[in-house]
Amino acid sequence: MDPEATLDAARERISACEDTEALKDLERELIGKKGLVAAMLAEIPKLAPEDRKAHGQKANALKQSIVVAIANRAAAFSSSQLETARRADDFDATLPAPLADRGSLHPITQVTRELEDLFLSMGYEILDGPEVELDHYNFEALNITKDHPARDSQDTFYCDEIGTLVLRTHTSPVQIRAMEDRTPPFRVIAPGRVFRQETTDASHDHTFYQMEGLVVGKDISVAHLIGAMKTLLRGIFGRDLDVRLRPGHFPFVEPGFELDARCPFCDSGCSVCKKTTWIELLPCGLVHPNVLRAGGVDPEEWSGFAFGLGLSRLVMLRHNIDDVRHLLDGDVRFLEQF
């Protein structure tokens, strides 16, 4: 048998194969256990010893050539199959995917967490305080005396006739609770829900969210307060905003301020800043000595600053929400947007 001729014939037949099945059959016939090459090798014992080696080499070379030829032919088949697999004639890229139900965190939760994380990163402790609060913490200890107009029931929900228990009107009572439970220096924030006895409308609700902040240490100054408030605003708005501090009166701070930030939504006045380019964001001040004393802190030795931030308002500003009542309405169409 002439190996050259055999190989040519085999190549011809391999090229003639039109599918994988035919190629497999041919592969068996040529190089299978009972195939052509196997028959060649089976002849070896019958040959003269000096011819055996050359014959064996020829048979193996023939086998290698056939293997290559079959592999090439097979590759041609699979590339045409891949081509078919890669076609996308029946694919519509605009088919809408089915809507997945989605869970959501309340926007108040989201903004609270952002602020908590910011303050945690600066070593502040996060505190909680009761929503049903003793008059002592909500007013008396905060230097809001019995005669103060803020005590009048037009603002406060009272839980009893004698005025022991109220729904807290601000998160500030946590200041006193914080001072009672720790020794200076310390810094804390207290986000939470507060209440004011007022009729609700699109921009007022009787229940809303605030965040209190209190820092007590040695020689805490207005300069520190300005620095801390700028850091806070940078955390909220992601960039530096001009601020201005102007006098504001709150019984539990002295001096007291209103901190305005340059309106982040406009350059020349918009509805959010009421055309002033400033938005009133943070009532703050140095803690009044009476308040430090009420919390058991010696105002001669320690000083501090406190601030409040309206979380409900911040959420409304951030998401451009036009009605505060959506926040506590429980409408999934609102909740799932966040």
């Binding site: 070593g123 402790e125 810094r187 207005v222």
Partner: peptide, 16 residues
């Protein structure tokens, strides 16, 4: 108050 420059707080680094 606008004429007062801001200052950073200085505290011992202790995690809450």
């Amino acid at each position: 108050y606008g004429n007062i420059e801001e200052q950073a707080l200085h505290f011992d680094i202790i995690p809450p």
